[in-house]
Design a binder for these strands. Structure first.
Length: 299
DNA sequence: TAAACGTGGCG
DNA sequence: TCGCCAAGTTT
């Protein structure tokens, strides 16, 4: 147990007050903030994993229109969720959201649970999402650490440009120590919003930051990140790209498709078969007895 | 722990 | 143009 490098009490209070006051005026009017039903929060959190808000908005609206409750989604085949997911990316999230909705119906009477352990037991819900649902949907005092919040704390408090690749114990202690006594759920939303709108990864707008005068990274002259360089994701020619192509065919088709339709979108047969097998193993694609391929449950 | 997992927009 | 990055989770 190390002592977290906390701010002086007066600075900590000002950090709370200024960020919360800023949030009151700058918070975006997002649909999952208007309808704060736990299901709305849960759906938005799944969609927002590694995906920008702007791309989520239209898919989210259509999704909630079609499936207003977990039971509504659970009543349909998983393939419908995959299809409705569209081009949001990481389609296993659609499968997991469908599975989570099913679990909510089976284990929690159709109501999204509020307890951390119950949330973590749902498919696709990890440390961040459990905290986000507890905080945003139920107003609980939960530690929430997403990429935005972590970056804000790294800069303002720790004085470095970026947080470590993975959450460290010290970082969790810091986030816990920084939580205000009251309205921790507002603090979570406010710090996340600050990271998303002002304290951005690439070009932070420090002139618009409510706590620029407290920021240790700024005070020390914006030292560049010195840690290991984050490995970029390769894309061209990868299995990932191939999977995307194959699944797009199925998503855009009316029903099951012939193998030839899949073969047409990727030239390398070895890689194509490997990717298709992977999609089947993941449950994103079903090989039918007829020899056709379909989204799960799509007959 | 590190690698896999989609997609598209921005600097 | 092209690498970086986006409200992470799983294995």
């Amino acid at each position: 147990m190390s002592t977290p490098p906390l701010l002086p009490r007066a600075d900590l209070e000002r950090l709370h007050d200024d960020v919360m006051a800023w949030f009151e005026t700058a918070a975006r009017d997002l649909p999952w903030r208007r309808d704060v039903s736990p299901w709305a929060v849960m759906v938005s959190e799944f969609m927002l994993q590694q995906t920008p808000v702007a791309r989520v908005l239209p898919v989210y609206e259509a999704w909630m229109q079609r499936w207003p409750t977990p039971a509504d989604l659970a009543a349909e085949p998983a393939g419908e969720a995959v299809r409705a997911w569209g081009r949001l990316g990481y389609p296993r999230r659609a499968l997991r959201l469908h599975a989570a909705a099913t679990a909510v119906v089976e284990r929690h009477g159709g109501e999204v649970p509020s307890g951390r352990d119950d949330l973590l037991a749902l498919p696709g819900v990890g440390d961040y999402t459990a905290g986000a649902i507890a905080s945003f949907a139920f107003g609980d005092r939960a530690v929430v650490m997403d990429t935005n919040i972590r970056r804000v704390f790294a800069r303002v408090v720790s004085g470095v440009e970026y947080p470590a690749a993975a959450v460290t114990a010290a970082e969790r202690e810091l986030a816990t120590a920084l939580m205000p006594g009251e309205d921790a759920h507002v603090w979570a939303a406010a710090t996340m919003e600050l990271g998303a709108l002002v304290c951005t990864a690439r070009s932070p707008q420090c002139s618009a930051c409510p706590v620029a005068d407290l920021c240790r990274w700024r005070a020390s002259g914006y030292p560049a990140h010195d840690g290991p360089v984050r490995r970029g994701q390769s894309w061209e020619g990868t299995d990932r790209q191939c999977r995307g192509r194959l699944l797009a065919v199925l998503r855009e088709a009316e029903g099951p498709v012939a193998k030839a339709r899949l073969d047409a979108v990727w030239p390398d047969a070895v890689q194509r078969e490997r990717a298709l097998d992977g999609l089947v193993a993941d449950g994103l694609v079903e090989p039918l007895d007829s020899g056709l391929f379909a989204l799960p449950g799509d007959r």
